[in-house]
Each structure stands twice: as structure tokens, then as C-alpha cells.
Design a protein around this nucleic acid. Structure first.
Lengths: 169, 169
DNA sequence: GAAGTCGGCTAACAGTGTTAGCCTCGATGG
DNA sequence: CCATCGAGGCTAACACTGTTAGCCGACTTC
């Protein structure tokens, strides 16, 4: 394993265990037993580190979504992955992808299962991404009241999109 | 106008004109011609300042959504406000509301138009909030490819939820 | 053996939120 | 008229952030 991968590993562990405010160059270095400036021998800066984590998130999503064969399985897989990796999810979705640092195939691979469930209707796939992301994001940001029944909200959303499916094959 | 309101005004202007990284205690103070530590005479810290901006965002949303009388008007109003106030929107939605600092009525007032469009079906309202928020958030984060037709994606989403409306009255 | 690269180091800079402690007005009460 | 007191400003400082410059030791490769 390259030194660069070790750095990204340390960053990922820090982010997932202690949250985004723990993701500092000095703390990443400390995990590896070195000092912050040494990181810059492998990485141009924090932005590149975050882009590497975004790439990992896309990769993990691609494998997590691969098995989903219909809309409700896809939705369940999407939500499950997000709730299992909340920090990685928010890092991935809340800032633009720097497409000079993240391979285009990664983005496509993560999107493929959703697109397939939508029979390649790209607008429908994007609308579904919208619902799933919106519900997950609001849940992670704790914007729903504590007594909200989020499972039922997902059911309503899935039902709405399933009903319209006849129009699209 | 109280000194505290002047501070929040300065913060809002800074955030909306120059983005979140410009929202610094020192810069807010500079707008008012004072130094950062003086802000702490009116405000306990940056968290309270951000909560005050969240409250303003909810207030503005409440009036912006008030006129919407059906689902597609509501969706259009939601998207329009978000695109008109991207920084305020993200500040509002990406962190938990500190409900000790933001009045509960504000949250309810902003949600009321959506709830009314859904004939008080709370789960349906939350599902719709999910779609609208998801689509807006992905658009603001520039996560859709540059060639995506976002208007059409919204149409698909609205159509899906309109079709299911018969089940709910 | 010489050269060069790889990966570490310290010191430093400009910026962040925040606290402590001081001072100067203007108003209010005796 | 003077005393008191609070509101609202100030400077200095602390611990943190990302980042750069410059130096150094060890290992590999001619």
C-alpha cells in the first residue's frame, strides 16, 4: 500500500469516527506518527485529500447499490449506505466534485444501478436521486422533528414514483 | 434597530454577497466599523449568529411560500427562493436547527404552505420536502452534470407526486 | 563512492473563534 | 453636582487551522 493510500486511510478513519471537524492535516499526520507538513510530500493539500475521500465514497456506493434490482431495493440501499457512512455521505454530496481529481467512471459506476432501475430514463433517475438525497440529507442534518416517522415518509415517496412507472415502461 | 439586529444584518449581507467563508467574526465587525471582540457584547458566539440567520431564512421562506396554492406552484416557489438565496438556503438546511435559539413558530410558519398543499398529510408533505430539498441541494452543490435539464427533472418529480394525489384526497 | 530521490523535520505566516481585562462615554439616582 | 453604573468599544493573547520554505538523513541507483 502506497504512502498516499495510508494517508487517505487515516483521513477516512478520522472523518468517520470523529466527524468533519476532526479532519485536520495535523490530526491526519498524528495518526501516521508524523507531522503535518510531511503530508504535502504526497498530497497537494486538503482539497485533494477530500477529493480522494469523495472518490472512495463513490466506489463504496457503487458496490453497495449493485445488487438492487427494483426501485424500493434501490431506495433502501441508498438510505442504508448513507446512514452507515454519514460523514462520507455528506462530504460526497455537499460540495462539487472536482472532476479533474475524481475519475468520471467512478461517478458513472455509482449512478449505474439507479439508472438501470429507471430503465435508463435519465430524468426519472435524477428525480429519484433527488428524493433519496433530500430525505437522507434532511435526516442526517436532523431537520425532521424527533417524532417524525421517516420510514413512512420513504414509503410515500416510493409509492409516488412507483405509480408513475407505467408511463415509462 | 437594535445593535444586535445590525450585527445580524451585516452577517447576512456578507454571507449572501461573498459566501460562507466570508462570514467571519472579524469581517462582520469590520462592516460595522468595530473590532471582533465587541460583537460578543451582543452575541454569545458565531453559533448564535448563524442561528439568527437560520431564523431569518425561515421567516423569508414563510412569506415566499404563502401564495402557493397547488403542488407545482409550491415547488416553483421553493426552488426559486433557494436559487435566489443559495447561501442562506444552505446555512438553513445543512445543520440542525438549534430549537432553543430558533422559535418553533418560525419553523411551523415556513412549513405551513407545503402542509396545506398536501391537505395536511404530514408524511406526504415531508416526502415532498425531501424531493424539493434534494433537487435544490444537488443543484446548488453542482452535483448534476452541466448538461442536465433540471427543469425537466422537476417536471418528472412533480408529475410523480401529482399522480399519487388521488389516493390522498 | 556519488548522486539523487523519498520522506521526514522545524519554524513561520496569516487566518480563525474566543476570552480577559481595561477604558470611555452617557444616563440615572442621590 | 457629583457618583455610580452599564453599554459598548478597545488591545493583547491563546489555541487552533492550512500551508510554505528550507533543511536533513537514509536508501537506491548508477
Amino acid at each position: 500500500m502506497s504512502r498516499r493510500e495510508e494517508i487517505v486511510d487515516a483521513a477516512q478513519g478520522l472523518l468517520e469516527r470523529e466527524g468533519p471537524e476532526a479532519l485536520t492535516m495535523r490530526r491526519v499526520a498524528a495518526v501516521l506518527g508524523i507531522k503535518a507538513p510531511s503530508l504535502y510530500k504526497q498530497i497537494t493539500g486538503k482539497a485533494e485529500l477530500e477529493a480522494a475521500l469523495q472518490a472512495r465514497a463513490l466506489q463504496q456506493q457503487a458496490t453497495a447499490f449493485a445488487e438492487a434490482s427494483d426501485l424500493s431495493e434501490m431506495a433502501a440501499a441508498y438510505r442504508r449506505w448513507a446512514l452507515d457512512h454519514p460523514q462520507l455521505y455528506q462530504l460526497l454530496t455537499r460540495r462539487p466534485l472536482d472532476r479533474t481529481l475524481v475519475a468520471a467512471e467512478l461517478e458513472a459506476a455509482a449512478a449505474a444501478p439507479l439508472l438501470s432501475v429507471c430503465h435508463n430514463d435519465i430524468d426519472r433517475a435524477r428525480a429519484l436521486w433527488g428524493v433519496a438525497h433530500g430525505l437522507v440529507d434532511l435526516e442526517l442534518a436532523r431537520r425532521f422533528p424527533a417524532d417524525a416517522d421517516i420510514d413512512r415518509v420513504w414509503s410515500v415517496a416510493i409509492a409516488a414514483f412507483s405509480a408513475g412507472a407505467a408511463d415509462h415502461g
